[in-house]
Each structure stands twice: as structure tokens, then as C-alpha cells.
Design a protein around this nucleic acid. Sequence first.
DNA 1: ATAAGGCCCTGACCGC
DNA 2: TGCGGTCAGGGCCTTA
Length: 276
Amino acid sequence: MPELPEVETYMRALAPQLKDKEIVNAQIFWPRIVAQPDPSLFCDLIRGRRFDSFGRRGKYMLFGLNSGETLIIHLRMTGELRVQPPNVEPDSHTHLLLNLTSGERIHYRDQRKFGRVWLVEDVASVLHKLGPEPLSDDFSVEGLVKALAGRSAPIKALLLDQSIVAGVGNIYADEALFRAGINPRRPSGHLDESALARLYEAVCWVLQMGIDLRGSSLGSGPQNYLPPNGVAGAAQESHQVFRRTGQPCPRCGQPIQRMVIAQRSTHFCAQCQPEG
DNA sequence: ATAAGGCCCTGACCGC
DNA sequence: TGCGGTCAGGGCCTTA
């Protein structure tokens, strides 16, 4: 499941592959994948455009086109983007093809069809609800304190809330809380400033580590993520708690426990992340 | 305003 | 072997 480090890894790989390449046209096989504008207009607008700039905001991929518009892609759970040679045919999970003048084709695949694509003039119209970008100056302890003040929801739930901080998903939320020694169920507003300072550091640290290791490539199954060059990332090997239920905590040896918070599977060490 | 639950999807997995 | 049920989960939507 692509979170910030996986999306960042994608963009770093795609930028040199796609820079200045021209889109001949788009083929949409499952129209609901295009969130905006409507699919026929999407095809009209993207025809003949070149890839100009590349960016990321939270888990959103941003492709700036030479028209001034931006192609925004969110992979959600199972989306994949691949630049393929002409002889690679789309399969039943391919919902969008962008044909390039180079003959290559960008395949958007998505087993669960949760991902979405936008083509907009105003990026903010899609991203306006996002909170601060965690590895930038916009993210700070003070900001975190302010955003969580008076909130009773468990801290795990608010770490997943993209308006609090952008880009953190289930994997890195669990890892950050473990690193900070904070129980995932603690009411957010009850955390004191020193706990939030540790959490701030931990969020930055686990995300940067994830980027440095080129993302987490988890086991088999539909949530498996591979960077666009097909080489697995290595961040999963540095996971301390995520999907390690029953295995010894790397710090104290107690078995890692699992519980559900905000409908999300949550992994933690009861010893190192005490309640209250 | 916040919190909690449902929804979208489909492949994997489980028990019978 | 086949079948039904359950699970996973990001972000948006509805409900309380």
C-alpha cells in the first residue's frame, strides 16, 4: 500500500523516464478511475501534452504538463503505474493507458479500483484539505500540538487523518508510534508536549527511512507494492511492529500485539507503548 | 465541530 | 473441488 515513501520513490523513478515525453492520447477502460474532469474531456485535454514537472504532495503524485495543467494520481491501496514498451499489452486490471509518442505506454493498473486520477488547472482544488507536508518546514511540533489540542480520538486515528499531517498511512503510523513509545489508543489531546515532540521526530524519521530504503514491499497479496522499476524496496525489513503480531518486540522481547483502531489493523508493544 | 461507521472493490484465505 | 463468508484498507461520505 503506497504511502509517502513509496509515492516519493515512484516519482523519483518516473521523473527521468517521462521528462518532456509527449502523450499521444489516453485510453480509459474503467471510467470511474478518472475523478475529474469527465472521461471524454480528460482525453481531449491530455492529448498532445508533454510531461514537464514532477512532484508529490502527501500520497498524491503530481505530473505538471506543458499546458499548465496537472495530472494528479492517487494510487490508494493497489494502484500501480508502469512505463512499458509497446509490446506489453494491458491486462484486465489496467484501467487507463497513456500512449506516448516514444511508443512507450503508461499503464495504470489497480486491482481494487480505489485509486483516482484528476486533470486540473488548480491543484489546490484537489489537495486543499491536506495538512502539512511532513518532511518540510510546514510540519512542526507546535503545529502538531495545536492540531491535536482538545481532540479525544486515539492518536493512531489522527495520524491517519491527512488533514493533520499528509502522507502517513497504516504502516508508518504504527512504526512512528512505536518509535515514540506512545500507545496508539491514547487520546490525542492528552499527549503532553514532550510526547508530541517524540512523535514529531518519529514521524519524520520513519518516513525518511522509508524513502532511503525505497519504500516497503510487503509480502504477497494485492497490497504488495513494487517501485516502477520493479526492484523491491527494503523498508519492510526495518519494520519494528507492523505485521509482526506475536513476534518479539525488538526492544523488550514482549510479543507484539494487534488491535483495531479506526477500522485499521494496529500493531504495537504493550510494554514499550503503555496506556495512560 | 468532532467521532464513528459505512462504502467502494476484489483477491486471498478459511471452514465446511 | 466448490462455495459462502470474512478480511484488508485510503479517503470520502453520512450519521449522531
